[in-house]
Amino acid sequence: MDFRADILSHRDRLYRQALSILADAAEAEDVVQDVMLRAWEHRGEWDQIENMQAWLAQVCKRLALDKRKHAALLRRTPLSDDTLDAARHTSLSGHASDMERHETLHLLCDLIADLPSPLDDLVRLRDIEGMSYRDIALQLSLSEDQVRVYLHRARGKLRERYLKLHRAGLNP
């Protein structure tokens, strides 16, 4: 097991995972750095880790969710309200496209984060990493049939909540 080849090489995938939880580039990068340092601290146990990619993804998710919870506590507002605030802010600021992008990123991250586990992981692996059902099944220790059923359920929930938030954002 080599740090650079077997661990550091997963940086971009971990970064996208963290970004899809936090919707913030700098915070996502911090999380990936923490994941890397944690993996390095556990270098004596690398041989016992069966699936390094899955192990790193689990650590990354935990750290990113902790950070997300912390940020939500600081804001002390429900995430959906926050999204609406961002939508209102968009119409006031000159940089509509930047704000729009920012808002949309938050919206997608909130939608995915609201899905129960493992539906959230499944959507991330499929829609962000573009992974096949087979690879997703391997990474999440599910059967391919389960992946199919869960993805169907996850996308149904996404559509429902997306339309609700989107309409609210457009016509406040």
């Binding site: 970004l19 990068e29 992008r101 808002e103 997608l108 829609d127």
Partner: peptide, 14 residues
């Protein structure tokens, strides 16, 4: 917005 946000994260990298 949904598909563009997906795409934005999908191409993000360090």
């Amino acid at each position: 917005p949904l598909f563009r946000a997906e795409q934005e994260i999908a191409v993000a990298h360090l």
